[in-house]
């Protein structure tokens, strides 16, 4: 229902920030953002407003959470839910929450 795209703040002037969306820079308004933002912060943009400052550590935590789901499954209910080679692939790509 609502396109939200994360981007990185490159400058802040009052309630107006310039945000880089990995390729294009666009003005984003900050008055609705849940926290004050600084240059280098990541924000979630919806229709030209930042609606969330995304703490980078939360990204790592989200990925770790997904891996936990898989690990719990692998140990869990007596079913081999993860093929061994898949597990290996995950480990090889540093999927354990680096």
């Amino acid at each position: 229902m609502c396109l939200g795209v994360p981007g990185k703040v490159v400058s802040v002037d009052g309630f107006i920030a310039q945000v880089d969306f990995w390729g294009v820079t666009r003005q984003v308004r900050l008055e609705l953002c849940d926290a004050d933002v600084e240059v280098g912060d990541y924000v979630l943009n919806h229709v030209g407003y930042a609606i969330r400052r995304i703490p980078p550590e939360e990204v790592e935590e989200t990925l770790a959470l997904y891996d936990e789901l898989l690990e719990a499954a692998a140990k869990g209910d007596g079913v081999d839910l993860l093929a061994a080679d898949m597990r290996g692939e995950l480990d090889a790509t540093g999927g354990g929450g680096s």
Binding site: I54, P56, T62, L63, L82, M86
Partner: peptide, 23 residues
């Protein structure tokens, strides 16, 4: 740490999650 959406498009993890869903 970087906030990069590509991290959330990792096909290896995706396949693992799909296997879990199937099981």
């Amino acid at each position: 740490p970087q906030v990069d959406r590509l991290q959330f498009r990792d096909p290896v993890r995706a396949r693992a999650l799909l296997d879990r869903l199937r099981a």
